[in-house]
Design a binder for these strands. Sequence first.
DNA 1: CTAATGACCATTA
DNA 2: ATAATGGCCATTA
Length: 111
Amino acid sequence: MTFTDSVYEVVKKIPRGKVMTYKGVAEAVGKPNAARAVGNALNRNPELKTGDRGPGTADRRHPVVPCHRVVRSDLKVGGFVRGSEEKTRILRSEGVEIDGGRVSLGDLSIF
DNA sequence: CTAATGACCATTA
DNA sequence: ATAATGGCCATTA
């Protein structure tokens, strides 16, 4: 189990319509100070590395690892491969409430 | 092995 | 509220 894999494991469990912070994920994998590394992990391989989902089945909006459900500690959306704009749209489409570039505290999954 | 790279975080100005 | 600063850390070159 590599750090990166652990991260995917956790992120996969985030329910639809909810979000978790990078910090939160870091803590969930037992490395409270590795928030930055978490962002890095997602940035590299989200759906590519997870290998499953044969070729052609690419659905950018609902990847095997819902990396769009991870936001910053201050609840601002944060970055995304396709740009923060897209990230926001996807989250909204899942029912996450976002205003002023921030998600509402109620949509936070775990701490 | 060392250096560089970020989708981060908390503090301070 | 925003901007700069220093710190943290796994991954990659």
